[in-house]
Design a protein around this nucleic acid. Structure first.
Lengths: 215, 215
DNA sequence: CGATTCGGAGGACAGTTGTTCACTCACTTC
DNA sequence: GAAGTGAGTGAACAACTGTCCTCCGAATCG
């Protein structure tokens, strides 16, 4: 048997992946809106027109890259927040996950950081959607914690967004340490600062008391 | 008299400014690395070659834009932090300054957000330098506050960076509310969230106690 | 086995790009 | 008032871009 449903389909996905990889590589030193279709197909080694068999344009390829970049991280962060008990342990492990992710997929992280506010609307939207999902999940995870009992859903969400933004900023900051002299030391400093800042935020949460403000 | 030392130099700076303005406008919907030299000169209404009288290349123009974008904000934030007494008042006024700045110079803010991690090294570096200066000044301002007495310089700097990053992220978030339905309400929500988050950070600071950690 | 599908090749198209060079001509300087 | 400076011009360059069209040939399907 093994009629291998798709020698053809397999080949197609292979070159599709090659297109994504080539684009990701080229995007390390430019942004998506300046990337050329021919540039990509050339480094893959196929004819320019073959590109259209896979994506309508480079924006569509960019959206595919966003999913590829954030899907893996998504699962990891999720398990981290659910499994670990205790704020301190969660912070430690969340930072470790980010650090490892940046080390393993630097190009993906750079791409997201660069295109988050980049020149292609569809890609910006895709990234915003993913980060929105992150925020929602972190808020949900926080809700199960004893330190968050009695908190309004809205406040939990703002707190979650604070955590997420800090992690994203940290990832970008880690990337920026590349190229600096003694990059590894600079990286360690950034990671340590992130831990410190997250801890301070957690302390702020513990001592938060409704606080007058609005009605 | 009035020998007007520089009818010529005045003209030059005028078209130089026109180049900056045109570029800033075009950069609202693309990133610097995809901006064309001819594109800019065309919208200004001068010959492509005239560009070289003002900038070596678009990267140099980008660096000039960074200074133009962050210099004004620089002075404002500085006075805010020094004049106001009390954390709450400082937060309120810092958020107000950011909000106003984004409203007055949306294109500048978008440019900085976009090119902070963009594809042009020189511009990234220029932005990083400016943000570094912001962090240092905020740390210096924090040091004069009673709540920060006895704090290590290093911790103050990490705290300052946390504030600065939050403000930058807030500025970008405010921009993203444009185009949403009921944009003004979305904007108000972002601003309010920023206030809330900054307040929480301030509370974290107040309750921070050396905290074991490292020697 | 024959018919069909479809990923990819290759040529051609009109536009656009950055940079060069020699040039003009209003301003500045002596 | 003559000489010099320098911002801006305009033509020309080779190189590149995205997209259209026709075609090929191997994997699929009946």
């Amino acid at each position: 048997m093994s009629h291998t449903v798709g020698v053809r389909q397999a080949r197609k996905q292979k070159t599709r992946q090659a297109l994504l990889d080539a684009a990701l590589g080229l995007l390390e030193e430019q942004s998506l809106s300046s990337l050329g279709l021919r540039e990509v197909t050339r480094t893959v080694g196929i004819a320019p027109t073959a590109f259209y068999r896979h994506f309508r344009d480079l924006g569509e390829l960019g959206v595919a890259l966003v999913e590829e970049a954030l899907d893996s991280l998504h699962a990891m962060v999720r398990t981290v927040l659910i499994e670990q008990a205790g704020v301190e342990a969660q912070i430690e492990s969340a930072v470790a996950v980010i650090d490892r992710h940046v080390r393993e997929y630097p190009a993906h992280v750079r791409f997201v950081a660069r295109e988050r506010h980049g020149g292609v609307r569809a890609v910006r939207q895709a990234i915003a959607d993913q980060l929105e999902r992150f925020g929602a999940e972190v808020a949900e995870a926080l809700a199960t914690q004893p330190t968050a009992q009695g908190w309004a859903e809205r406040d939990l969400r703002m707190l979650a967004d604070l955590f997420v933004d800090r992690l994203v900023t940290t990832a970008a900051a880690i990337l920026d340490t590349e190229g600096a002299e003694d990059a590894e030391a600079a990286r360690a400093r950034v990671v340590e600062a992130a831990r410190w800042q997250l801890r301070l935020i957690a302390i702020g949460q513990q001592h938060w008391r409704g606080e007058a403000g609005e009605g």
